[in-house]
Amino acid sequence: MFQHILSLLGEFKAYNRFFSKDFAPCRQLVFFSESAIYYQTFEPFIIELLKNPSIQFSYLTNDPKDPILTHHHERLHPFYFDLCLKSVMDRIDARCFVWTAPDLNSTQVRAFRKSKKVKTYLYLFHAFSSTHLQYNETAFDAYDAIFCVGPHHTEEIKKREQVYALPAKQLLPVGYPRIDVVYQKFQHYTPKFPDQTTVLVAPTWGPGNLMEQGIDSLIDTLKSTDYRVVVRPHPEFLKRCPDRAQQIKQKVQTLPHFVWEDHLLTEDNVYEAAVCITDRSGIAFEYAFGTERPVIFIETPPKEFNPNWRALELEPIELQLRRSIGIPITLHAIPQLVPILQDLINHADDWKQTLQSLRQRHVYHPNQSARTGADYILSQLQ
């Protein structure tokens, strides 16, 4: 009870500061994050924005562990809100309010309503995936502007606006800084395990994911090899299925050459991996287009949160490119995976050329996305 009162008093103090008259210039541009994990989505844009010496802005987070709260820059002002968050959202008066949380103005749990005082609600994608399969049907309808990762986002959103007679949004061809960051860091990365071949196992979360079915068979198959195997569960799986996660962790930790990585504090194993094994995780595209190395997809059920996705008559990009950036195999074929894995490693140069071409075709502004997006944000403040 006492801690609750202290938290409320702390937020009330921050609330008054945030909405004070003197702080108004810092409310013209505001970022909002629901979780610490999304800081990596915003960071490239923030770095570019801070190169402009005249800009100052705020960053609101709903996660007390968000790294932004320890970020010290005189023109970047972080705030943590939880108990007061709804009131902040209702009252905010930004010229540009930047999010990476879908379902604005929807009836979903924890969804927020638009403030009439905000000029532009801007959405940034934190995944390469299409808009109409893995998200709720109306997930992006309420935004005023959207930074599109590639032509698929532009086409899908325009098609939805046409089919359902929705108001047109500003669809900006920006790209995906996350891929750019992986690519740039990978180019300068020095392997820490040069004498071992690393395989990264990075499944998604949700019903029917690889950690719920198939992971034991995969571990049993790979333990007979000399590969260094890194098992990297999704944070949402750890949060939602702690008992199952603990079972898998205990099994992994008994095996030589296996590593259990249940944090995202470092990307080293993404850069180490010669191949990534996943199911339906968005890491497949970040890995394939960032490192120019192939992916093995285990065929688990698609993540379908929009039962009406076929109405757009557009194949989701995560289904369309599945056979282009790697090799899909069924759950039953996992025991025969090793020769496939070795073949991908042996033909790494061929895959590199293929993935370079696909990235150029399907991602806007490779290695320039953060600058492109920052320029648009700055234009909204003029």
Rank of each mutant, 00 (worst) to 15 (best):
L218R: 09
I248Q: 08
P235E: 12
D195K: 12
G214M: 02
D195P: 05
P173E: 08
D195Q: 13
R228S: 08
Q170L: 10
K223M: 15
V199K: 03
R244Q: 13
V201W: 02
T190V: 14
K192P: 00
G214W: 01
I179Y: 01
I248A: 07
D180Y: 04
Y227T: 06
H188C: 14
P256S: 11
M211Q: 14
L222G: 02
K249R: 15
P177Y: 05
Q246I: 14
Q170I: 11
V181M: 03
P233T: 07
V199S: 03
T197R: 10
V229H: 00
P203I: 15
Q213A: 10
D216V: 15
Q253R: 11
A202V: 11
V201F: 02
Y164Q: 12
N209M: 04
L238S: 02
T198G: 03
Q213H: 11
Y176K: 06
D220P: 07
T221A: 05
Q162D: 11
A165P: 03
D216S: 14
D195I: 10
K249C: 14
T221Y: 00
D226M: 11
R228H: 14
Y176G: 02
V252S: 03
R160T: 08
N209E: 02
D180G: 03
G175K: 06
Y164G: 04
F237Q: 05
D243S: 13
D195N: 12
Q187F: 00
K249N: 11
P242G: 12
T197L: 09
T254F: 00
P235M: 08
R228V: 06
V252E: 02
I179D: 01
G208W: 08
L171G: 04
V231K: 04
D226K: 15
Q213M: 09
P177N: 10
P173F: 06
G214P: 01
T204K: 02
Q187V: 04
K251C: 10
Y189I: 08
T204E: 04
V231F: 09
D195T: 14
R178H: 10
D243M: 11
K192F: 00
P167L: 06
A202S: 14
L172F: 07
K249G: 05
Q250H: 08
R160D: 00
Y164S: 09
V163Q: 06
L210M: 07
V163Y: 03
T254C: 05
T190Q: 12
G206M: 11
A245P: 04
E236W: 13
Y176M: 10
Q253D: 11
W205G: 02
T198I: 09
K169W: 05
K239E: 10
K192D: 00
Q250G: 01
R178A: 13
A165C: 13
P167T: 06
D226G: 12
I248Y: 07
L238F: 00
H257K: 14
P173I: 08
